[in-house]
Design a protein around this nucleic acid. Structure first.
Lengths: 236, 236
DNA sequence: CGGAGTCTTGACTCCAATCAACAGCGGTGG
DNA sequence: CCACCGCTGTTGATTGGAGTCAAGACTCCG
């Protein structure tokens, strides 16, 4: 009944080939604006399901596919100079992982599932070919570029600056929650640390303190928090 | 004779309209791959020269133009939650400032010249129109996207993590210097702090310490440094 | 010459890192 | 079934590094 019933394996399971024309989510994905017949050129697209902690690809590997995320949550990780992993971005349903496959053939991050995650694996070469004929796809790619950059800049200005309290507050308020929602996925202290550039202990203390103050509770894999209350710490 | 002879004003001077077909730098700019006749559609392009500290545009302003940088150095700044400015990226010759004008009409950063800087100002609408007809431009834009994202991620993992010594070393070694060069523009302590998320005092102390150790000298607006010596601090 | 802006240095404080111990939970294997 | 182990999270004591506050040096410029 609890979140413990969700799959916890680290596997990647292949669910067969997808037919993009029949895809229920198509309109919210990268290919939203493509005419239906162009979708044939994407094939073969493989549907895969990742357990939590499954690794989609690793930094430095040569990149032949990109991944359209249907459900779930993925973290993009790079190694910091001291050897510790640093989370640079999250990818949610509708996002695309591994777009660097379109240009230079090497992944820049390690992509690891945080929640069980469904993805479609698309051969980079096919997308590349479609690009030649359909500028709609380019428009969509550019759109995503702006979005992605914004998120990267947000990590710089909002999540790598200020006190531990401030960073955790801002994470809760902006990063994974709906604009006016008061819940978000309960990350491990480890992941929070890797995102906010703090140690596990500091994150644990900060989260615990918020709980004591009644600003935050954690239940069934979710953080539920008090927006107004946290806003006070968010400028620290 | 020294760098003091360079202009130090904060003005923006309009130098007249450009004829892109005659531009000596065209091949290294955004329009490298465009056929010559497409360049007509860019017009009118204004050539401008900025003194150090001149502001090209401000965060939140509505964005009708973008700027191709011919020479100089520009910082992109966002306000951190505590109200202090944070530098998220530098733009050098060949880079484009204000690409967000292509999509959502508001600048996401304040762009300020650090050195005297030449730019060409291009109406966003014109570029947008060219995009419809020439996918070469899209390719170039995508290429730049990857580059820009890489730089943003580098600020996250390399410049916002670790000790003050580590951050300053890594800035010197990677951010504005040639891959194997041993010089880079001598930023103010203020700008270094805004980039590395450190206070002016901490930057000053760190730079001073590197100088005492003979790892770094500052002359005529340049840092000259010892790559091998700094590499030791770069993992801190 | 005086003033503004930048840089440096010192003394002190404070926040987060570090080191260490332990609790809780789930999974595993004897 | 239960003992053990690994993983995650918590908490405490201590340390260290950067922030803060304050004063003064230096440079450029009017």
């Amino acid at each position: 009944m609890t979140n413990r019933s969700i799959p916890r394996c680290r596997d990647i399971n292949w669910l067969g080939q997808a037919d993009c024309k029949l895809c229920a989510m198509r309109k919210s994905l990268l290919f939203a604006r493509l005419p239906e017949d162009a979708l044939d050129d994407l094939m073969p697209v493989d549907k895969m399901i990742l357990g939590a902690k499954a690794i989609l690809y690793r930094e430095g590997e040569s990149a032949h596919h990109l991944y359209s995320i249907r459900t779930g949550l993925v973290k993009l990780v790079q190694l910091a100079p001291n050897g510790m992993p640093r989370i640079v971005r999250f990818l949610k349903a509708g996002d695309v992982a591994g777009l660097e496959a379109l240009s230079n053939g090497r992944f820049r991050h390690t992509a690891e599932a945080i929640l069980p995650t469904d993805v479609c694996r698309i051969p980079a070469e096919n997308l590349f070919q479609i690009n030649r004929r359909h500028s709609e796809l380019y428009q969509e790619l550019l759109q995503r570029w702006m979005q992605t950059l914004d998120r990267a800049d947000e990590v710089i200005t909002q999540l790598s600056t200020g006190t531990a309290q401030g960073r955790v507050s801002r994470f809760l308020l902006h990063t994974l929650s709906e604009p006016d929602g008061n819940t978000c996925v309960a990350l491990t202290r480890d992941d929070l640390g890797a995102l906010l550039s703090l140690t596990v202990e500091t994150v644990s203390r900060t989260v615990a303190e918020f709980k004591r103050q009644g600003l935050l509770e954690e239940k069934e894999g979710l953080f539920r928090f008090d927006r107004a209350g946290l806003a006070a710490s968010a400028t620290l």
